[in-house]
Design a protein around this nucleic acid. Sequence first.
DNA 1: GCCTAATTGCGAGTCACTTGCAGGTGTCAC
DNA 2: GTGACACCTGCAAGTGACTCGCAATTAGGC
Lengths: 139, 139
Amino acid sequence: MADQHELRDKGLRLTPQRELVLAAVRELGHATPEEVAEKVRQTHPGINLSTVYRNLETLENVGLVQHTHLGHGGATYHAAEELTHLHLVCGTCGSVGDAPIDVAANFVNALADDYGFKTDVTHFAVYGTCSACFTAESK
Amino acid sequence: MADQHELRDKGLRLTPQRELVLAAVRELGHATPEEVAEKVRQTHPGINLSTVYRNLETLENVGLVQHTHLGHGGATYHAAEELTHLHLVCGTCGSVGDAPIDVAANFVNALADDYGFKTDVTHFAVYGTCSACFTAESK
DNA sequence: GCCTAATTGCGAGTCACTTGCAGGTGTCAC
DNA sequence: GTGACACCTGCAAGTGACTCGCAATTAGGC
């Protein structure tokens, strides 16, 4: 696995726990540390929650995963290679939808041109109401 | 003050603490509950932190203030009448810049048309790197 | 001024991490 | 293959940011 290189280059190790955490993040798509821990425990029950937190942080430093804020405070983790979409968080039902980054391209460019602000599209959640909830509401 | 109507209409009271919390939010522009509490304590030292939290929630229900997630987990409160701008949060220096809602208009419309997703522009923080930090980084 | 329901203050509790530390283990040099 | 050492893990305790329950207080209608 190429992951090993990313870690070794920084003098870090590829431990079983670390592999499991990375695998869990990849499998879950987007998950909170708690969800990752739960997933990992299905195959390795003894793993400690603080180990999960530390590994998520380590993997993020190396660039294999990234986190996003989906509101409500908690961070959500993603495998870095899956970060090709925006997150549409529904404030009503709590669901998280996806949209391609392209939708935001104009917006990102406008912010860059007018404000010199370099937007990190992968890190931002869009808050609102999803179509299902909006339809239900307006009935 | 018109605020009183908003509250009384819902059978709520306008207490000194509530006025102070609202005044603090208006004066601070955007502030965390902790900052609001600190501000309020300058004029009314005895106020309890849980009172501040409860009042922020109450004022939000009434529509006089709103909260936004600026990353890092904590919610940030704003006076409702000041919510005419987006928040540009710099991940490097932590500063919070403003941009008019119009910048996002196309983006919001695109999401509405393509995904039926009704974006709550006032609730979303844009994460990235501000011009000052970006200039410093690329040196 | 009186009465009642909304509020407040306080202390305790919860949730989501974070930290310190001692023991374990992957890696590298030889 | 062996040994040394820095990196990791698990555990337990700690921290920050709220949230809750309850008795005492008080705003506001009558």
